[in-house]
Amino acid sequence: MAFRVLLADDLYFMRMVQKEVLEAKGFQIVGEASTGTEAVAMYEQLRPDIVVLDITMPEMNGLEAMKRIFALEPDAKIIICSAIGQQSLIVDAINSGIKDFIVKPFKPERLLSAINKALQG
């Protein structure tokens, strides 16, 4: 059965890129959130195998959403999508328990490899 993925990014374009990459490799995108609030709600409802969470999002940012998802499910598998200047935020997120992070702009194989490794672990 295909792994179920939740994508969270405020930019439709980014989500589309990720969706294309992942669907091409047989993943099932079960939901797309454009704010942190949406991401948490969708996580609770859909219980995906893995979440790809952008740090910079309106309403509630990715890190806050990450914390709330971990509160719902301490073993949640989360990959953070970040930019080059966000090193300390990434370290915070690692301390909170994310499986991996990808740095924008990223190549498709980075996303795939990070997700595959995270799902194995």
Binding site: L11, Y12, F13, M16, V17, E20, V21, A24, P105, K107, P108
Partner: peptide, 18 residues
């Protein structure tokens, strides 16, 4: 372009809209 094998025109359209 960085993405080969994807539908580039579709991507470009989305990019321009955004």
């Amino acid at each position: 372009m960085a993405f080969t094998g994807l539908d580039e025109r579709k991507l470009l359209r989305a990019f321009l809209e955004e």
